[in-house]
Amino acid sequence: MVRHFMAALQKHKMCYALILPTFFLVFLFRYYPAFSGVYHSFFEWDGALLEEWVGFSNYIEAFQDAKLWRSFLVVIVFISANIVKMIPAIIVALLIFHLKSEKHQYLYRVLFVVPMIIPQIVYMLLWKFFYEPNIGLLNQLLIGLGIVEPDLPPMWLADPEWVIPSLIFMGFPWVGVVSVLIFLAGLQSIPNSVYEAADLDGCGILKRCVTIEVPLIMSQIRLSLVLMIIATLKGFERILIMCNEFGGPNGAANVPGLYMFRMAFMEGRVGYACALGMLLFGVILVLTLLNDKYVRVEK
């Protein structure tokens, strides 16, 4: 038995050799940190010398941490907004799909990819400049239109009331390229017979869109939805760049990822940050499992 097994290993040693680089890197840079994070979530750890077993107290502290709860509320607000912000991409995909000329379809697909290849950081810094209170574009526009008092311009990202709306509005008109293209691919796979049937029934454009097309690309919509929710839950770079490591004025836009980041790298509470990371992982895992179980994407 063992000999048989050894022979099989021997026979396939080329296979193991070929996959070795991949697995070496994945184990070292993905698995090891992940397990180390689980392990250290039970420690009071400053990332260096202090390393003291504290059992579950990091987790207990997290459940009693009002700032953490608030950060989850903030991220839920962002997720809800992002769901609404998916609509333009769907509409754009529908518009492009219904163009008669294939040439135009292709041209627009290319044009919509262009904003994606501008580095994200450049985009964010440009928006940061738009929101700049004194010389930023937004205030100049609003003052020019007479909507805003020139002496008392809104501070946008620096105003605890406005920081979340500003972050939500950012990136207008919110057409993520990848989602436009995914939706387009979904629309293109709708069989022609469906359309012919709809034409026979004398279906209007709006009705056709709501009753036929959107339901038929539901699996693509769901996919983007899941990807978006996970990305929003763990994302924090945008808020770190647009505001600061506290999540804006009074921490008004603090999200869980950012809170974890600050605990680890600014406050030296690395063990606690690992526990927060585990909680975040848990939430994402539950959402993924729920999605697999109840809203399975049909192939």
């Binding site: 697995f23 940190p33 180390s36 763990k234 974890m260 690395v270 690992c274 585990m278």
Partner: peptide, 19 residues
Amino acid sequence: LLAVMMMVNVASLVPLFTL
């Protein structure tokens, strides 16, 4: 390999840094 997709990058940011 597929299980790595489930991992939350931010959760292992700190151990990755110390590594």
